[in-house]
């Protein structure tokens, strides 16, 4: 069966995110008040052929751990779509 998996990769909370900081400045210049913090990460979708949802999730987890995210600087969350 084919499973659609979404992976959210974000910079670790303690880390300075210069990209988010720059966008924050842009939002301020736009005149939008009330936005106190911006952090930018990645949204990755995988289409996985697997025997079960658990197997698909385990594969996505391995892909995240080995390549898609670097635990020194990022954390990730996996969400099954179907």
């Amino acid at each position: 069966m084919t499973y659609n998996v979404q992976i959210k990769v974000m910079p670790l909370k303690d880390l300075l995110d210069p990209q988010g900081k720059a966008v924050m400045g842009g939002l301020k210049n736009l005149g939008l008040g009330g936005i106190e913090d911006v952090r930018i990460g990645k949204h990755i979708t995988l289409q996985i052929e697997a025997e079960s949802e658990d197997a698909a999730k385990a594969l996505a987890d391995e892909a995240s751990k080995k390549l898609l995210a670097n635990p020194v600087m990022e954390f990730y969350e996996i969400e099954m779509i179907n």
Binding site: L15, L16, P18, Q19, K21, A22, N70, V72, M73
Partner: peptide, 16 residues
């Protein structure tokens, strides 16, 4: 660093 031959990581420059 990505290959784990050296520890740590190189992040985007602080001043972007």
């Amino acid at each position: 660093c990505e290959s784990h031959l050296l520890p740590g990581v190189l992040l985007p420059n602080a001043h972007q």
